[in-house]
Simulated assay, not measured.
Amino acid sequence: MRVRISRVVALAAAIVLTGTASVSGAAAAVAGTHVTTRPTIVLVHGAFADSASWSGVIERLQQRGYPVVAAANPLRGLSTDAAYVRTVIDSVPGPIVLAGHSYGGAVMTNAAAGDPDVKALVYIAAFAPDKGESALELSGKFPGSTLGDTLAPVPLGDGTTDLAIRQDLFRQQFAADVSRQQATLMAVTQRPIRDAALSEGSGEPAWKTIPSWFLLAGADRNIPVAAQRWMADRAGSRATVEIRKASHAVGVSNPRPVADLIVRAATAR
């Protein structure tokens, strides 16, 4: 377990104020909630999305009593994004289950490496790179991705480029099984990703030491399902679930099976 100075200080203050050495009670006071043995679910969104894309999944996890944190993935560079998500993980007490969607899978693969508090990794239509591999490389490993033809590049001052999906093509590319109204909102609120993030090679992958679960989107136009299946097999997935007609936005269109798989990982022994 990692040591968090702020929690230690708060715990000491709680003991002094209450005049008791009951660690469990003081810890509950610091957390502002009852003591629970359930892991915290930390969710990492991918490119062309934001944390709101997890809303349906979050609702179902909370209904089952799980604490949830949705990290705001910066989408600037794989190593820097992973470093940020690692700070989010470090702020969470107790055991953690990490779930990542799309590029968020690559980020959590790096962020969780060597962290003993992360008990499971859940890949939702996500990249699970090995050392040196990039998201761009993996998306082209098998035929079927049409993402490149839908992107609207915006040059940045440092010579790199921000990439977003054209709003008029967003639904057919990213969220074909989501209602037109919701897909329109998702297109407008999507967050662009810096091209360098997609081409940056991964560090040592957490899936080599942490158990993993995979959910595959069978009608994905961003990451071909063949690539998703290949990564799941390589990682030694404990369980692989495929939703045959699901788009890349499978967490939006099918939040229940996504939440079910996360809970399955959280309760595994």
Rank of each mutant, 00 (worst) to 15 (best):
V188T: 13
A28L: 09
S237T: 10
S6F: 08
A206E: 01
A219F: 01
L11W: 10
G32E: 07
D162W: 07
A26H: 04
T87R: 08
G56D: 01
P153Q: 08
A249G: 08
A125Q: 02
G251F: 05
S199V: 13
A259H: 01
T189D: 10
A219D: 02
A26E: 05
A266K: 07
I58P: 00
Q173Y: 00
A175Y: 02
P155F: 07
R238T: 10
G157I: 06
A227I: 09
I262D: 02
H101K: 11
V188Y: 02
A197K: 05
G25I: 06
L215D: 02
I41V: 15
T184F: 09
D50F: 11
G32W: 01
A27G: 12
A226M: 04
R60M: 08
L43N: 01
D220A: 11
S134W: 02
A187P: 04
G105N: 05
A70R: 12
V8R: 15
S51Y: 06
L136H: 07
D81P: 12
V122G: 07
V9I: 13
H248V: 06
T240V: 14
T18Q: 15
A196P: 00
V57N: 02
V85S: 06
S253P: 04
R60E: 00
P192W: 04
S6R: 13
I193Y: 00
G46L: 04
D168Y: 03
T37N: 15
S199L: 05
A47L: 07
G46S: 00
I41S: 06
G100L: 05
L215H: 08
I41R: 11
M1Y: 05
V263G: 13
A268E: 08
E59G: 14
G201S: 06
A259I: 06
H34E: 15
W54V: 12
T40C: 14
A29C: 09
G201Q: 01
A72F: 15
A27K: 11
F174V: 12
Q62S: 10
L121M: 03
K141I: 11
N110C: 11
A72D: 15
I165G: 03
S22G: 13
L215P: 05
W213M: 07
S22V: 04
V88W: 00
P67L: 12
Q182E: 14
K141G: 08
Y103V: 07
A268S: 14
L216R: 12
W213P: 03
P205T: 09
L98C: 14
V241K: 11
Q190L: 02
V225A: 11
A70T: 14
R38K: 15
V88C: 09
S253N: 05
T150W: 01
M108Y: 01
T240L: 08
V44A: 10
T20Q: 12
D168G: 03
D81V: 12
Q190W: 00
Q190T: 03
P211A: 03
A112W: 00
D81G: 07
G56M: 04
P95E: 09
Q190N: 08
S102W: 00
G148K: 05
L185I: 10
P255I: 03
V3Q: 11
V35H: 14
K119S: 15
V57C: 03
G140E: 02
V30M: 13
I41W: 02
G32K: 10
A13Q: 15
A196T: 13
R76M: 14
V97H: 01
I89Q: 00
G104L: 03
A82D: 00
E133K: 13
I96N: 05
R38Q: 13
G132C: 07
S199T: 10
L169N: 11
A14Q: 14
